[in-house]
Nucleic acid binder design. Structure first.
Lengths: 342, 342
DNA sequence: CCGGCGCTCGTAATCGATTACAAATATGAC
DNA sequence: GTCATATTTGTAATCGATTACGAGCGCCGG
């Protein structure tokens, strides 16, 4: 109980001396208790307690060649979308004794800090990438290396494939939005897409177009990105049209906010004049005015699933990465931003 | 240029052999280029290049007793407020060669994972805490240890003081909100506070009360927390009143969203009937309907300042923590959620 | 030409754990 | 009781870097 405050750091040697055993026995008592007699084990545990011993991670990592650390790579930490995914990752990693370090993609793609270097200098022994736009050279190098099997993508994925990933059922979400609007009676639906470089953009757009085609619904796709401005621009575009769509499916809630804001300011009301559905179901959607119908992705579950998939891979270390795609279901959340067309 | 793909990991020995020098020279050529002759330095650099050598962090940490890693401790990663603070932290840390690991306070306060253990087992050599509600026992132990000087608080701070911290000028923000409302003509202003356990709550409330007292403005404080529900509850409370305040200053934008949502649904319109000001200026405030006036905190700057303060402390390692409080200015952002009272 | 000073550089110790191997001890079958 | 086998335990090598120490060498003043 009594922790030795300060002095020198307590090492395994100190514990061994105190317990009258060798350092090997201390190590075993802690990591494989069954391989040691009850008597010695208790002595070691008591000595650990009384000295306040904590294993030195650097020393362990050096010897075992495992850092017990996972790197999460994000496009930008500033985007609140990812924070809950991170939480899911931490939820799984921490109980498994793994630490999480975070870095931004820019530092990988632009600065010389190659992704593979995180493996090579033992900073991490696994990576969860939340960005489908990793540079192709990084990807190729990773794929050819022995570390490829310790990479998992979450939320997004590389267009070229080849890596395991966890993602939401994006096309299915788009389909659900279309179904809902179709059932309300809409026959001309627009879509404000995400940025062209992003893999989510075609996934959602294709799901939208396919579902509309099946139902002979007229469509219109507008270029965008996931920002408020994209919605505001889309609003301007729609306002300038003669024949306006009666509903809009947006590739993100944030786009929808911008769109609603732009339409409302111009006197076009939602949902009376135009119905709107977003994607993501972020926290504020429920309390936006009007509350925004959306496709909910379970972000915490995405993070958890990705972390688990990564840890599973640690077991079966086959070398090359295997493309294993896990799609998590999404849910349509009905709210007051949709209604039957006039 | 030609990277050796896979094989065994390249070690400093390999580089030394290739360059025909000792490992000591390789180490020096990389960490203190001036202490080595130009000829050998070039040979080493060439060998590093041709072998693709990367220093093994675990080995370095073990030898130097520094992990070059900073721990960021958050109440919960799920809260998007912190993501931009984290970004600021990373902005400063990465160029300084420091990695960032993140953990949640729960795991420190509840699980046995003591904060000080991050120092003791060399997982981190500095900590940035984004939570004022660390358990007192953790704090005390930290303060008495030799690691106390490597802790910096950001955004929040322990009520008991004693540690350096970076924070927004919370009271000043409240004052600015009151000034604005007073100038519009409001003489009865309510405040929806944050949660009682949080240090930000009294900071903002006291600033509010003081500014109101100076101007002989009638006040009303409502208990709350930083959630949407707190705003919705406050709306109900206000709707039930005979003499309603003409303006409400909320301890967070999220509270304000809930409040506006609750008032609007009941037919009370903002800002015609009641003016509302939030705190934080989160991204959505600008596009809420109506756009929400707020007190802007520069979250990225908070993170940057905290990271810099921590790194500065590394230099002057005096042992005990010094209470140094750095308050970053906040800005009042005028938007359509306020107007003169009827 | 000698001695001293200042650079470079290499040898080897060191950080603190894990673990291969062998030694010591316990267990069980006959 | 003996011998073979199984279980515990200790000794010492090992992971890959950094760095104290001292050797070697060049330069300079006297």
């Amino acid at each position: 109980m009594a922790h030795v405050l300060d002095k020198k750091a307590v090492t395994i040697q100190d514990v061994a001396r105190q317990a009258n055993v060798s350092t090997a026995t201390v190590s075993r008592a802690l990591s494989a208790p069954n391989s040691v007699s009850a008597k010695k084990r208790d002595a070691v545990l008591a000595a650990v307690e009384s000295t306040g011993y904590r294993v030195n991670r650097a020393a362990r990592s050096l010897r075992t060649q495992r850092s017990n650390t996972v790197l999460a790579l994000l496009p930008t930490l500033g985007n609140p979308f990812f924070s809950q995914v991170l939480q899911g990752i931490v939820d799984v990693l921490t109980p498994a004794g793994q630490a999480l370090i975070v870095a931004e993609t820019d530092q990988i793609n632009n600065a010389g800090d190659d992704l593979i270097s995180y493996f090579e200098d033992q900073r991490a022994d696994g990576v969860i990438v939340l960005d489908g736009a990793l540079s192709p050279s990084s990807l190729a190098r990773l794929h050819n290396s022995s570390h490829g099997s310790r990479v998992v993508f979450a939320c997004e994925w590389p267009a070229s494939g080849g890596f395991p990933s966890v993602r939401s059922a994006n096309a299915d979400g788009a389909r659900k939005a279309v179904e809902h609007l179709y059932d309300l009676g809409h026959r001309f639906i627009a879509h404000v897409a995400g940025p062209e470089g992003n893999v989510l953009t075609p996934a959602r757009r294709d799901g939208f177009l396919e579902a509309c085609a099946e139902r002979h619904v007229a469509t219109l796709c507008m270029a965008g990105d996931f920002s408020l401005d994209a919605g505001i621009n889309a609003a301007a575009e729609i306002l300038a049209m003669e024949n306006r769509p009666t509903a809009v499916f947006c590739a993100s809630d944030v786009i929808a906010f911008g769109l609603i804001s732009g339409l409302t300011r111009a006197g076009v009301s939602v949902p009376e004049d135009i119905s709107i559905i977003g994607f993501d179901d972020i926290e504020y959607s429920e309390h936006f005015i009007p509350p925004l119908a959306s496709i909910r992705q379970d972000r915490v579950a995405l993070g958890q699933a990705a972390a688990r998939m990564l840890l599973d891979r640690y077991g079966s270390d086959s070398g090359a990465p295997v493309e294993e795609i896990r799609k998590l279901p999404v849910e349509f959340i009905a709210r007051a931003s949709t209604a039957a067309p006039r």
